[in-house]
Amino acid sequence: MTTYIDPSPSAAAAALESPTAAPASGAPAPGSAAAPAPRKPRQGLVHGLLSNSKAMVGAAILLVFIALALLAPVLFPGDPSRITDMAGLEPSAEHWLGTTAKGQDVMALTIHGARSSLLVGLTVGFASTFVGILVGLASAYFGKFIDEALSLVTNVFLLLPGLPLLVILAAFLPPGLGTVILVLIVTGWAGSARVLRSQALSIRSKDFVAAAVVSGERAGRIMFREILPNMASIVMGTLLACVIYGIGAQAGLEFLGLGDVSTVSWGNNLFWAGNEGALMTGSWWVFVPSGVCIALVAFALALINYAVDEVTNPRLRKIKPVSEGKAAK
C-alpha cells in the first residue's frame, strides 16, 4: 500500500508557499526591477507543466496505459480469465508474458486489468478530491462551529489506521466493485480535505474574498467562483495523490482477497498469483507485470505531482550548483 502518506509532499510544499511579499511602495519602481504583471495562476500552471520534463514523462506513461486500457478488447478479444490447458508456460513468442497456473495469458490479464484498476483509481481519486473540496471550502467559508466540526471529523478519519479500516469495512459489506470504490472513498477523502482546507483558509482571508462577501454574493458563488479557482494547483496535486491512493489501496484490498475476485484487475491478478503459489513455483512472470504496471502508473502520477509542486513553488526547482565565489569576475 503505497500511499497512506497521502499528499504529504504537496502538503509540505503548500506550507512553503509563503507569500513572497511584493514590496509595495508609493515611489515609482526602478526600471531594472519592475515586477512582472501577475500571471493568471492557472495559465501559469498549465504552461509550467507543459514545459516541465517530469510532467511530460509522467503524462506520456499515463497516456500509454489509458490507451492500452481502452484498446484491451481489441488487442485481446474474449475473456482473459478463461481457463485453458496451457498452464504455467514461460514467456514465449506466443504468450509474451507466459501463462498462469490456470492457463490464462498473463499479457491479456495485465492489459485487461488496466481497465478496472484505472477506472477505480480515477473514480476514487475524483470522488475523494470532490469530497475534500466540499469539506475544505465549507470549513474555510463558514468557519466557526462548522469548521470545528468538519476538522474534527477529518482529523479522526485521518488518524484511524486506513488499511485495517478498509479491511473491516470490506468484510462487512457485500463484495463487489461498488463496495471497493465506496470503501476507498470513505478512507481516502480526509487527507485531501485537510490539505484543501488549509489552502482554502488562506485564500478565504484574502481581501478579494472579503470584498465579495461584503458585496453580498451568494455563498456558493464565493466558494466555487472566488476561492476554488485560486486553489487550482493544490487541487491538482491532491487529485493526483488521491488517484495514486486509489490505485494502490485497491490493489492492496484485492490482494487480500477482499475485492471483487471475479473482475480482472491488477490487484486481483496478484491475489491469484499469490493464491496459486506463483512465487513458490518460480513463475515470476505471473506476478511481475501487474506490480510493475501499478508502480509505473503511480510513478507517472507522482512525477506529475512533483512537477506541479515545482512549477508552483520555485524554491523546489532544481538549481545549477554554482558557488557564488566563482561567479565573481
Binding site: 509595495a24 519602481a29 557564488e324 565573481a328
Partner: peptide
C-alpha cells in the same frame, strides 16, 4: 526606496547571497 538593492549590498558584503543571486563583477 524599497527594492533599490540596499539589502543586497549588505548581504554581499558578508557573502550571504543565496541562489539565484550572482555576483557579476566588482
Amino acid at each position: 526606496e524599497s527594492g533599490c538593492g540596499k539589502s543586497t549590498i549588505a548581504n554581499t558584503i558578508m557573502r550571504l547571497l543565496k541562489d539565484p543571486a550572482k555576483i557579476a563583477g566588482g
